[in-house]
Design a protein around this nucleic acid. Structure first.
Lengths: 344, 344
DNA sequence: ACAACGAAGTTAAACGTTTTTATCGTTCAT
DNA sequence: ATGAACGATAAAAACGTTTAACTTCGTTGT
C-alpha cells in the first residue's frame, strides 16, 4: 500500500488535485463545504503532506540550521556549555511548526564562517542560529548581506541591527561588582572568555566601569581571557594567588572555570570565604553542589533557547529584527555571604 | 542569475539531461570523455546537486534522525551527559556523506517512542540513532519490525541483533570492584542510573557477580537507582553514610553524581580518602579538578560518537548489524590511591 | 437583454532529479 | 550482405506539490 498523496484524495473526492491542495492550506478560493469534504477524506486515508514535493516546488527547505561550535575530538575539555539544552530548547520552540533543526557541528570560527556561506548561497536552510558572536562578526555580515534570516545567541556591535538573545552581561557584572565591593573586596579578579567574543568585551567594559565607579584601580594582572575550561580557572587561581597583592574575589564566567578555580584553591591551600571567594555565572545550576556552594548568577538555559527558536520563526516570517532583541538578566543566587571572615 | 541545474549543464554541453545525470554519478553507461566534458562544464558553471529534486525522485531523505532525550525546561538539572559532543561527533562522521543530522529533542521515553514511530512510518529520515536504551526496548522493536536502519548508544537484550555502541560496563564494574576489594574495601556502594536502563542492569549484575566472587554479601541498602544528577549523588551519600555500617567506597555512574557525592561528604564532614572514597565513570574528564581528584574510568565521548555515525552510514548502506557492535573499554585513571588512610 | 463580474473549480506547467525505455550507429558473426 | 548484439546517448515519464492561467456558471448592474 502506497502512502496517500493529494492525488489519492482527489480521486477519493472527485475533485482536482489543485482544489485539494488549496483546501488543505485553507485557501479562500475553496468553499467551506468542499474543504470539509477534503479534510474528511484526508483523515480517512491517513494523508500526510510530503515535504519533498513542497520543498522542490517552493524552494523552501523547512530547516533551521543550528551552528554549533564544539572543539574537535582531541580537545574535548569540558566548557560547561549545555549546548544540548540549547538545542533542545530551540527544537521544542519549532515543534508546532513545519521546521526542523538541522545540526551543523563545526570545529572553529573559520569553519562556521565557511558553513554559513554555503548555507546562505546554496539555500540549505531557511534560517540560521549561531552563537559565540564576536563584536564585529563576519558571519553576521554575510547573512545580513544576503538578507538571510538569522538569530544570534550573543550580541554584536554592528551598525545594522539583528535579532539576538543574550544574558545581560553588563548588568550582571555591574551588580556583581557592586555587591563584592560592598562586602569589602578591593582586589577582584575577572576570569573572562576569549577576548574576541562579544560578551567578553561587554564584561570587561562593565568591569572597568565598575572599578572606576568604586574608585578602584584597574590591574591587568587580575584579568584573564581564555577558553572557559576547568584548567583555565585553575591556572589563573594558581597564578593570581601568587601575586604580592592577590585577589580576594574571583568572578568566573561559567561554572567549569569556577570548578577549576576551586581546584586551584585546594592546591594552594586557600579556603573559600577566608582567603578569597568565587562567584560565577551558572548555566547548569551545579554550583550549589560545590563545597562550599558559591554565589552565582543563574539563567536556566531553557529561557534563551526557546526565545532563539521563537525569534528565528518570526524572522523567517519576515518580522523586522528590531523587535527581536532580548537581554535576559540571570538571577542572583546568594549561597555564601562572600565577606571574608578575617581581614588580611 | 539562477542556480545552475543539470539542465544548464545539458545546454552548455549539448548533451541530454539524462546523460549529464548519469555522468555526474559515474554511471558506466557514459564514456569517460563525455563524463570529462560534463564534469568540466559542471565546475565551470558552479553546479551543486539540488537535494530536493533527488529526495522527491528517490524518496530518500538524506537525514539521520538523532533522538535526544533531554529533560523538559522545568527539570533541567545537570546530568553530566555531553550530548553536544555526542551530536557533533555524529555530525562529523557524516561530514563527507550527503547525510545531515536532524535533531529530534524529546522529553521522555514515551515521546521518543512516538517520534520514532512517526519517523519510521512517514520515512522522515533514512536512519535513526537513539540512546538511553532499555533492556527490552520497544523502540528497537518498532525499528526492527519496519526493517529501518538504526544504531543505539547502549545495549539491549533483544534476541534480534542490532547495531550498537556502548561503554563496556560489565568489564568496567568488574575491574573497578576488584581494585577496590584489593584495597581493603568491604562495603562498596553503587550509584546506578535508572533501573530500567540497560546499562544500569548490566552494571548491577556485574556488581553482584563481583561481590559474589569476593565472598562479600549483597546489601540492597548500598545500591541506588536514579537520574544521575548531583542531587542524586548527594542524597545517597547522606543516607548511606548514616547506616550503622556505612560504605567506604562509592562507585558513581557519572561525574555529576560524583560531584554531588562530594557535596554530601562536605555536609557530613567526611574526608575523601580517610572516611571513604569516590570512584566514577567520567565522560568529561572533569574529575581531575575535584578536590581532591578522584579515580575514574574515562571514555572520551568522541570515540563512541564517531562510531555511531560510521555505523549508521554502514547500516543505511545495507551492512548487516552483527558487524556493527562495539563495546569500548574506558581507560582507568588513578588519581588517588583509594586505600583508606586509617581503618575504622 | 447583455456585458461584466466574481466565486469556485479545473488544467497544465513547473520545480530538479533519476530511471526506464527508445533510438541510432557500429561492430561482428554468419 | 544480412541482421543480431552492443555501446552510447536521447526521450520521456515519474516523484508530490504549488500556482498562474483558464473555464464555467450563476449573479449583478445598467
Amino acid at each position: 500500500m502506497q502512502r496517500p498523496t493529494i492525488k489519492t484524495i482527489a480521486q477519493e473526492t472527485g475533485l482536482s488535485i489543485a482544489t485539494v491542495s488549496k483546501a488543505l492550506k485553507h485557501s479562500p478560493q475553496v468553499r467551506p463545504e468542499t474543504r470539509a469534504i477534503v479534510i474528511e477524506a484526508a483523515e480517512r486515508v491517513g494523508y500526510e503532506l510530503n515535504m519533498h514535493g513542497v520543498q522542490l516546488r517552493t524552494g523552501k527547505t523547512y530547516q533551521v540550521a543550528a551552528i554549533m561550535t564544539a572543539p574537535g575530538p582531541k580537545q574535548n575539555e569540558w566548557e560547561g556549555v549545555e549546548y544540548a539544552q540549547l538545542l533542545s530548547g530551540i527544537s521544542w520552540a519549532l515543534e508546532d511548526s513545519p521546521y526542523r533543526v538541522s545540526l551543523y557541528a563545526v570545529r572553529n570560527f573559520e569553519e562556521s564562517q565557511a558553513i554559513i556561506k554555503q548555507i546562505v548561497s546554496l539555500k540549505k536552510a531557511d534560517g540560521i542560529i549561531i552563537s559565540g558572536t564576536r563584536a564585529d562578526d563576519p558571519r553576521i555580515r554575510t547573512m545580513h548581506a544576503a538578507d538571510f534570516p538569522f538569530v544570534t545567541y550573543g550580541t554584536s556591535v554592528h551598525n545594522a541591527p539583528h535579532a539576538y538573545v543574550d544574558a545581560d552581561n553588563e548588568q550582571m557584572i555591574r551588580v556583581s561588582m557592586a555587591r563584592l565591593v560592598e562586602r569589602g573586596h578591593r582586589r577582584i579578579a575577572l576570569l573572562n572568555p576569549l577576548s574576541d567574543l562579544s560578551y567578553g568585551i561587554t564584561r570587561l567594559e562593565a568591569y572597568r566601569h565598575a572599578l572606576e565607579g568604586a574608585g578602584l584601580p584597574f590591574d591587568p594582572a587580575l584579568v584573564a581571557h581564555g577558553r572557559l575550561t576547568p584548567a583555565f580557572g585553575r591556572e589563573n587561581v594558581l597564578t593570581m594567588s601568587d601575586l604580592s597583592n592577590p585577589p580576594t574575589a574571583y568572578i568566573c564566567a561559567n561554572e567549569a572555570s569556577a570548578l577549576g578555580a576551586f581546584s586551584g584553591f585546594h592546591e594552594r591551600g586557600l579556603v573559600h570565604g577566608r582567603d578569597a571567594v568565587i562567584n560565577a555565572t551558572d548555566d547548569l545550576n551545579v554550583s550549589q553542589y560545590f563545597a562550599p556552594p558559591i554565589t552565582t548568577y543563574y539563567l536556566p538555559i531553557s529561557e534563551p533557547s526557546s526565545l532563539l527558536g521563537a525569534y528565528i520563526l518570526r524572522r523567517m516570517e519576515g518580522e523586522p529584527p528590531e523587535a527581536l532583541q532580548t537581554l535576559l538578566m540571570p538571577k542572583l543566587i546568594e549561597r555564601c555571604d562572600d565577606r571574608l571572615t578575617q581581614s588580611r
